[in-house]
Design a protein around this nucleic acid. Structure first.
Length: 263
DNA sequence: ACTCGTGTTAGCTG
DNA sequence: TCAGCTAACACGAG
């Protein structure tokens, strides 16, 4: 689920976990908490507090008053859950009903506060990740705050497909598969076009449409609200011109584009 | 029954 | 050095 817009919503939930004394931590999921052995994250956090919640791209991290930072990544389908002393969810919108019964083992990481509330990483697929003192080296600047000039030089620095450049988190942080397709569709650029062959006007148009797509997704509650997203399927048609949508693999990911406008 | 997928990363290959 | 592929994670959807 999560791309930059969804992760920003998760960060706001995480704010509800700040300034509460940490009584216990369950860090026993060795995959989600790798490379930390069980107990290592707990030892670093218990007795302290989370003091700030940050985000760059899809990566979140909390400052603490114990000298550590706590990295939180949602992977493909992770969710941040924060509860109050009554065990009620806080910080999110209206709680959407779960289709399937929620299995306790899908809580991959838990921080228990002295007030009885909790912060949990809920993640069925186990693709999320919790790390102590994560390095942000190698993570590009946030996709939301990038100058046109910086965007142009970063994207066009390689001959890879332009979609692969958008997805590369070291180039810019926050663009996932759906946002990449939405942005390229809005800009009418073929996803497989070599990035270093794009003209300046194409790169600037791509940047403007990335900002528009991001702004729209954040305002409407996530990438699923993108204009072309619902047309990414066989028999789908371009919502602008009506031409057939094409499908293929670009940058190693499933990709849909308009056969006429993004030829 | 079987394939695909909103993400990341280490390891391998040409 | 760069670019592309694969496996691993584990579940839901079609």
């Amino acid at each position: 689920m999560p791309e930059l817009p969804e992760v920003e919503m998760a960060r706001k939930v995480l704010v509800e976990a700040l300034d509460r004394e940490i009584r216990a931590v369950d860090d026993n999921d060795h995959w989600v908490c790798r490379p930390h052995p069980p107990g290592e994250i707990a030892q670093a956090l218990v007795g302290g507090k989370l003091t700030a919640a940050h985000r760059r791209g899809k990566t979140m991290w909390c400052e603490t008053d114990t000298g550590h930072t706590l990295g939180v990544h949602l992977g493909m389908g992770g969710r941040v859950v924060v509860t109050n002393e009554e065990g009620e969810r806080v910080g999110g919108g209206p709680e959407r009903p779960d289709r399937q019964p929620r299995k306790p083992e899908w809580n991959r990481f838990t921080v228990v506060f002295a007030d009885g509330g909790e912060f949990r990483l809920f993640d069925k697929r186990r693709l999320g990740r919790i790390r102590l003192d994560p390095s942000l080296d190698g993570l590009g600047p946030d996709a939301e705050h990038l100058s046109p000039a910086d965007f142009r030089t970063r994207i066009a620095r390689s001959r890879s497909a332009v979609k692969a450049r958008l997805l590369d988190q070291s180039v810019l942080a926050g663009v996932g598969n759906l946002l990449a397709d939405e942005t390229l569709w809005r800009a009418k650029i073929n996803p497989a076009a070599p990035a270093d062959e794009l003209e300046r006007k194409d790169l600037d148009r791509l940047h403007r449409n990335l900002e528009k797509a991001l702004k729209s997704a954040i305002a409407h509650g996530g990438m699923h609200t993108g204009e072309v997203i619902e047309h990414r399927h066989p028999d789908g048609h371009c919502p602008r011109c009506g031409a057939e949508m094409r499908h293929g693999t670009v940058g190693g990911r499933s990709t849909w584009w308009c056969s006429r406008e993004q030829a």
